[in-house]
């Protein structure tokens, strides 16, 4: 959780402040290197070195690190096979990257004084919107204009069409919103809650043991949520991809 600079608010939401580290602009747009960018770069470095170094020996009988790397590989491969099927294999690198990136972002956020870029709505929406656009393009490339049939499920009586089509379109458009909000809200709520309880520890003196225990419990819970939300984000991407490839 980022320690806010001097004179800034020390409230529970201060940890989500974007701090410029190396300010610069491109064409009038601010693209400074910030604490958020630092966390993203850290995620890339961590995930890449984990994947590369754990598989460096490529042993027939894997060691500890190699087992973890292979487990993550099998985990995503199975997820795609179960939710998308054979056609999903092409998208394995993207979905694997998505999972590892979100998981690394969540886990880096768990380190005290670090920064959780997955608690930034801009980041989660950016990812969710990219998935949404990509999946929609795949749907149109594969099915052409028939993909519009997605908005009128088969077997629905014709007189329900005026009702069904807007509902389906709305729910389809809501996908990136719900996908990004879910991750953003979970991470923000977790970090805020821990910060609030942590603030009470010193205020309450000896009774501060109670919020301290609470923080410990919440930290465990957040570790689970960090994994779970990365999983949910990835599996929903798989579900959307399956919808685009196979329609309903």
């Amino acid at each position: 959780m980022a320690q806010a600079g001097a004179g800034e608010s020390q409230g529970p939401l201060a940890q989500f402040m974007i701090q410029k580290i190396i300010p610069f602009e491109v064409g009038g747009v601010d693209v400074s290197f910030t604490n958020s960018s630092l966390a993203m770069v850290a995620a890339v470095v961590l995930v890449s070195s984990f994947l590369v170094f754990s598989m460096r020996r490529g042993a027939l009988v894997p060691g500890r690190w190699q087992i973890v790397a292979e487990m993550s590989y099998e985990f995503i491969a199975n997820m795609i096979r179960d939710n998308v099927g054979q056609e999903g294999r092409r998208y394995f690198p993207f979905i694997f990257t998505l999972f590892m990136f979100v998981l690394a972002g969540n886990m880096i956020g768990m380190v005290p004084y670090s920064f959780a870029f997955t608690s930034q709505i801009a980041v989660t929406f950016g990812l969710a919107f990219a998935v949404f656009i990509g999946v929609t393009l795949i749907g149109f490339i594969k099915h052409g204009f028939k993909f519009f049939g997605f908005f009128l499920p088969e077997g629905v009586p014709w007189f329900l069409a005026p009702l069904m089509i807007p509902i389906e379109i709305l729910s389809y458009l809501a996908r990136p919103v719900s996908l990004s909000l879910r991750l953003f809200a979970n991470m923000t709520a977790g970090h805020t809650m821990v910060k609030v309880f942590a603030g009470f520890i010193f205020l309450l003196g000896i009774a501060g043991v109670a919020p301290l225990l609470m923080v410990i419990v919440l930290t465990g819970l957040k570790l689970i949520i960090a994994f779970l939300q990365a999983y949910v984000f990835t599996i929903l991407t798989c579900v959307y991809l399956n919808d685009a490839l196979h329609m309903h």
Binding site: S36, M40, V47, V123
Partner: peptide, 19 residues
Amino acid sequence: ATQLFWLFLTFTALFLIAW
């Protein structure tokens, strides 16, 4: 803007490394 810019940059980098 900065977050989306860096998100694109880092995610693309990780994607290329993984792929």
